[in-house]
């Protein structure tokens, strides 16, 4: 049986001639449906480039991406996407921003009112539905952006360092929120990050990317039970995973 997502010999080169920059690949990755996969690597290794190519939002130089045997050759629309800089627009409230996702997709807002309330409740933003993004803290904004990315129940969620700009405490809290929602809805998640701990805590599998041009160094299956709370994070097995990944990056002189 074929995998849900198949990335074959995917490569990206920006520019041409003397300005040529080999950004990523070639790399081959298979992802199962409902899997939480982290793409972990130092900054500038091309992991965001990889994510955008998988989503069809960026053309690859060579190689191919297939979803359920179908070749990706343009932007994929059955996805939810979230970046370090959120995609909330300042002229809409939190609720209006979640509705933006539905409106752009031509979905009927009336059918989603209950789901909007539920998802806001699940990330403790129900009291802030009518606030504007600039009235919220950075962490609350990212939680609202997460609701925006999830409201249409996408089969695939792409997260590009969504917690990159947040403080340690807020990150911890939002990680727990992400995990909770993922366990309920079980979308396939591709999570781009440079935080080793974050990758180990959330993922079924961590894919380690080398410094530029990014290639796959190895893949590590994280065999820990969900939900991964503080107790699991303090377990020796968790620490072992983190240490082994640190050693790989140490070898590259990244840390």
């Amino acid at each position: 049986m074929k995998n849900f997502i198949e990335v074959t010999e995917l490569k990206k080169v920006f520019g041409d001639g003397e300005d040529e920059v080999h950004a990523f690949g070639p790399a081959t990755i298979n992802i199962n449906a409902g899997e939480f996969v982290s793409i972990l690597g130092p900054s500038g290794c091309g992991k965001s480039t990889l994510m955008l190519m998988v989503a069809g939002l960026l053309d690859s130089t060579s190689g191919k991406v297939e979803f359920e045997n179908k070749l990706v050759n343009g932007p994929k629309t059955d996805i939810g996407i979230m970046f370090q800089d959120n995609t909330l627009v300042p002229w809409r409230t939190v609720k209006g921003n979640i509705e933006l996702q539905l409106e752009l997709r031509g979905l009927n807002l009336k059918d989603y009112q209950e789901q909007i309330n539920n998802i806001l409740k699940s990330v403790n933003l129900d009291d802030f539905a009518d606030r504007y993004p600039n009235e919220l803290s950075g962490g609350m904004q990212q939680r609202a952006a997460f609701c925006q990315a999830m409201i249409h129940d996408p089969k695939i969620i792409l997260l590009d360092e969504p917690l990159g700009k947040l403080d340690a405490m807020t990150r911890e809290k939002i990680r727990a929120d992400f995990q909770k929602l993922w366990m309920v809805k079980k979308p396939t998640v591709i999570f781009v990050t440079h935080s080793i701990e974050e990758a180990v805590q959330l993922s079924n599998r961590v894919i380690l990317i080398t410094p530029r041009p990014g290639k796959i160094d190895r893949e590590i299956n994280i065999d820990l039970p969900y939900p991964r709370d503080l107790k699991i994070k303090r377990s020796p097995k968790f620490t072992e995973y983190v240490n082994s990944i640190q050693e790989v990056f140490h070898k590259y002189g990244v840390i």
Binding site: A55, P75, K76, T77, V89, Q101, L104, R105
Partner: peptide, 14 residues
């Protein structure tokens, strides 16, 4: 328009 918003609306197929 920010790069992120551009990618976001492209992903909606609008």
């Amino acid at each position: 328009l920010s790069n992120e918003l551009t990618l976001f609306y492209q992903s909606t197929g609008a």
